[in-house]
Write a protein that binds this DNA or RNA. Structure first.
Lengths: 341, 341
DNA sequence: CATGTGCATTACAACGTTGTACACGGCCCG
DNA sequence: CGGGCCGTGTACAACGTTGTAATGCACATG
């Protein structure tokens, strides 16, 4: 069952180390020997034991990607790019679902996969900034998303304030003046990150146009789901706030909003224009198609992996100041703000 | 940096093995000793080295899940359940994206992650049944989806023929007589699996009602994407086939179809009823909401993991006949077949 | 008081791999 | 013709953990 270097060595009539050298290609091996060893490898069907290898040089080549949800399109797409980027560097990605639960995030960060993992890319939701800052740095860490100010960890995200400002401005430029917000989150210690920043952007855009913020246009949600988007939209419509546009804090909320608007017989965009954020695949095929902020997911993924590698390279406790990178984004106008409907 | 059992042992004044015993809790250890060791562990922040552990007992506790796409909702949702099921058995899942490429599937099956992985759950797309049957069994394998007849591997899927029959019958029961198909795939060696079975079910349903199959109502797609669904629907509409219902071979195709129908000004379901398969989250929030076949994803995931465990348990080459399990499914009628629109 | 019993703890080896240090042989050069 | 060098190959140890077998010890028993 288990074919070891030793078996190959015996078969080829060489030492174990020589076989190892052939497998890894490290040292000069005479072509004749190499060929003989290779033949033995093929015959026996040898496969290196990665556990042993990892044990030997203290690296596993595995990194973990901790995300709240795999079945949220944004994270699924992001995961794909992270896996690709990691692969380019010879790393394998192990995906961990935290469900946005603080407990699970804490567990992952504490390194319950111990030495199995060389590094961690995490998108924290449940954990507050203070708790993240307590990260003891025993494992290289890169944070995705909106939690800022973690001491020993790098961080990458788009400029959420600017992006939200641009989204809002887009709606205002269409002449809309009662721009509703779907996705606000009252300041809970956890989860406040994204929502707070995006709301800031929204308010800045209003301010620049000299429009007074109307608190009745703000709808809160407990989490970012289609149902929550639909519910919040319903509340907004029922409240008599009469929005002529909706800025949804992400595309999933927006899809829920579109659904609710359709149910209420409101036309998009003529009655209510809608914009989201994230550019998930669904938004390109919904009816109407969804205008949105497109974060550069490829850049985010690539950058996260590179920062992690960087941090992994530094073996010891060398602090090396935490980097905070802003990824690019762009606005794409689709039917939900420009359509003919 | 690296805290080993030895370090803890020295700190606690006991032998390495005793610490190991405390950590694993295997043998009787005197309460006093246990306490002392535990204290040392806490002080030093000891974390077991999984690589060493794995090397020691030849298991890694890792299984791989090879899927065509992470950002396809069906697979993302399935992945979630597999991860959960695996966790219940103390296993960690490593997700591998094959992109439906035969090369990558071959690579994964050949075990390029070598001894890192104890088992593999795979949903093959690019690989044909013959190639899968050549699996040399060096790694326990469970197949998801429609590729049948793999010698040394277990297999789980819903009864696609029956499911497709039920979906079609649902449309026929509404009085529709010109049921179009979106998602057929001309018999390519690869990829023919799902499409062929679902088409069989479609034809059976027609036959039972004594309705002649009309080839002009069948639209082929190269892959299962929203765009492909939209394109195929457009072709169907342009061809003059005049369908009054569409059976889409999965929900993604159906969402594309819904989009195209809306663009053409056709109402769903009054002009054209639409049903899909897979029950992805998006379908519950589209406009109109999407009728579909709901596969029991939880059962599929749990069963796959259990079969894999079973196969992993048998250490040697014990063939143990390959099992072929049918998972349950149900039809859910939503607005796209029952709505008031 | 000697012996047997059972529990707590220990020493040792092994899992499969690879880095280090070294041995061997042939060849070039002085 | 001898010394050194380079190109190949080898022996050994170590990575951190845990199963096995053995040790020490206290207590109960004959």
């Amino acid at each position: 069952m288990a074919v070891r270097l030793q078996d190959v060595a015996k078969q080829a009539g060489v030492s174990v180390k020589t076989v190892s050298n052939v497998v890894t290609g490290h040292v000069h091996v005479a072509p004749a020997t190499r060929e003989r060893v290779q033949a033995a490898i093929d015959i026996l069907g040898y496969r290196p034991n990665l556990s042993a290898r990892n044990l030997r040089h203290g690296r596993s080549g595995l990194i973990a990607l901790a995300l709240p949800e795999l079945d949220s399109p944004y994270f699924a797409e992001l995961a794909r790019f992270v896996v690709q980027a990691a692969e380019e560097h010879g790393l394998t990605v192990l995906i961990d679902q935290t469900d946005g639960l603080a407990d699970r995030e804490r567990l992952v960060m504490a390194g319950f996969r111990s030495h199995l993992i060389d590094g961690l890319i995490m998108s924290p939701v449940g954990l507050g900034p203070t708790e993240i800052a307590e990260h003891d740095g025993h494992i290289p860490l890169v944070l995705l998303g909106e939690k800022v100010g973690a001491g020993s960890a790098d961080h990458i995200a788009i400029d959420n304030v600017a992006a939200a400002r641009e989204a809002t401005e887009h709606l205002l430029a269409l002449g809309r003046r009662r721009v509703g917000v779907v996705g606000n989150q009252a300041d809970s210690p956890a989860g406040s990150g994204v929502a707070r920043l995006r709301r800031q952007g929204y308010e800045q855009a209003l301010q620049w146009r000299g429009i007074a913020a109307d608190p009745t246009l703000i709808a809160d949600v407990p989490t970012f789901g289609r149902k929550q988007g639909a519910d919040a939209t319903a509340r907004l419509l029922d409240s008599g706030a009469r929005p002529d546009a909706l800025f949804c804090f992400n595309d999933i909320l927006a899809l829920g909003a579109l659904r609710m608007l359709a149910e209420r017989g409101l036309r998009v965009p003529s009655d209510v224009a809608v914009i989201g954020m994230d550019d998930i695949e669904d938004g390109r095929w919904s009816t109407p198609t969804l205008s949105t902020i497109v974060p550069d997911k490829v850049e985010i993924a690539r950058c996260a992996v590179e920062m992690l590698l960087n941090r992994m390279g530094i073996t010891g406790a060398m602090p090396s100041p935490a980097r905070d990178v802003r990824a690019g984004f762009a606005l794409v106008a689709r039917e939900s703000t420009f359509g003919r409907t």
